Simulated scan of single mutants.
Amino acid sequence: AIAKSGAFFEPGTGPVWLNNLYCAGTEYYLRNCDYSCTGNSCGHDRDASVICKLQYRLKGGSGPHEGRVEVLYNRRWGAICSDNWGPEEAAIVCDELGFDKKGAVAKQNAYFGAGTLPLILHNVDCIGHEDALASCKHNGWGKTGCSHSEDVSVVCQPLVRLVDGSGPHEGRVEVFVEGQWGTVCDDGWTTAATRVVCKELGYTTTDAVYKRGAYFGQGTGPILFDDVYCRGSEAHLRDCKHSCWDQKNCNHAKDVSVICKLPVRLVGGPEPNEGRVEVFYNNEWGTVCDEGWGDEEASVVCRDLGFHPDGAVVRKGSHFGQGSGQIWLDKVKCNGSEAVLANCEHNGFGQATCGHANDVSVICKPIPYRLVGGSGPREGRQEGN
């Protein structure tokens, strides 16, 4: 939310009711703040104004930078119709989500799939200089008269990427600043910074690790960030404190790298070693298509979950029941030696062409002992032989 003073939206008329307002920020109503009861000492040339930011999320894309636009209004999420939707509107959404508005691409007609939420905006028409989508012209909240086949989507320019790893979850950290990609120096790099990168890319922050000394090879071009310091709560790496712009006290031999964990779980089976395969990406659990699945793919899942990779069995056709929500992976192809499923070949996250009737399941060979008391099948007190 942005505060504006000096009658930013032109002076009002009538009485000035409140003056000397002081809010802690936790109050639910403005009347709960401290204030003077009348504004006799204040004129309309000092009328206060506010710009409230809408909250957005992108659903159905391959990562946090793209997807169907959903907006939070009046405490409920809703979708937007695509009439008049173009680069000006897409740029505002990307900017409010923390991405670079340059290169924002507008997509119409349910490009990332039709949603199911109420349609709450229609005929959004922006000039391009607005601070928020709500400042653009539109039909009014809830006045749509369209269908979900017209849901709007955007593709924003990613601000960070992982390069030259064995899969999209790992690699040399590169950032996008003012139209160019560059690397990041490992000076001062911490686990907190690693978690910010993984979170920004849509992975869980659990078990994320970093590597110094150009672990995934040296990059080229500028070194854009150095001496990065993150608390861990930042939404984007660029929000962390850092020195910037082609560092002279660093070289590409010190390019930092990150390995993000792609969590996998088995759901719906009678035992912990069997169930529907689900992966966690972009802050959401989703399923995997069964096309092409065999012993190699099943063994990778079982190994990742802490079971023995030998003897893994595939079950196709939603054997343990259909999942819901996203189908994250399709056409997965493993050679069997990969440590995690993300290292296998696949179409890309969110690019599935199947339905939940084709959710794949796996049965792992039971281990001769069990782990009791932990938060999952990979930890706990060992019992058995």
Rank of each mutant, 00 (worst) to 15 (best):
G373A: 14
A253F: 07
E345C: 03
W328Q: 08
A7V: 02
E130A: 13
N249L: 07
E10W: 07
S318K: 06
F176C: 08
V197S: 06
H252S: 01
R195K: 15
K199A: 11
R76N: 14
R238A: 07
Q55S: 13
E130Y: 14
D239H: 15
A104M: 10
I223G: 01
F320R: 03
G128F: 12
G188F: 09
L305M: 13
A90W: 10
S318Q: 09
Y210T: 01
T38G: 13
C37Q: 12
L117I: 02
G43F: 03
V196Q: 08
G384P: 02
V184S: 00
V177R: 11
H122V: 05
N347M: 13
E150G: 07
H138W: 10
V93H: 03
G165L: 03
V16R: 13
C230T: 00
C94L: 09
G348R: 09
E296F: 09
V209G: 03
I92F: 09
N273Y: 14
F112S: 07
D304T: 11
H169P: 03
T26I: 02
K59T: 11
R31T: 03
W85R: 08
L121P: 04
I223F: 01
G321R: 06
R238E: 06
E234D: 12
L341P: 05
L224T: 01
Q218T: 00
G348A: 12
H242I: 02
G179T: 00
E284M: 11
G376W: 14
A253C: 02
A339M: 09
Q322F: 00
D255L: 00
T183V: 00
F8N: 13
E130L: 14
C260K: 01
E88S: 12
N251R: 01
N84G: 04
G286L: 01
C334P: 09
I51T: 11
N74K: 15
A104C: 10
E284W: 00
W328N: 09
V175Y: 04
D255T: 00
V267R: 11
T26W: 10
H138T: 00
G323F: 00
C244W: 10
N358Q: 15
S337F: 07
D239G: 05
G115E: 13
E10G: 12
G325Y: 02
S36W: 08
G311K: 01
S375P: 05
W189E: 00
E345S: 15
G350T: 02
G39N: 07
H148N: 06
V209L: 14
N282Y: 01
R76T: 14
K241W: 05
F320Q: 05
R46Q: 15
A192T: 02
H122K: 01
P158T: 03
H356C: 04
A3Y: 09
H346Q: 11
G269K: 05
T353K: 14
R31N: 08
S41M: 13
E296R: 13
V313I: 15
H138K: 04
G145M: 12
V313G: 08
A114C: 11
G78W: 15
V155R: 10
Y229W: 07
G384I: 04
A192V: 01
C240A: 03
I367W: 06
G213K: 01
V279F: 02
W77M: 11
N109T: 06
L133I: 12
G306F: 13
C42S: 15
G292D: 08
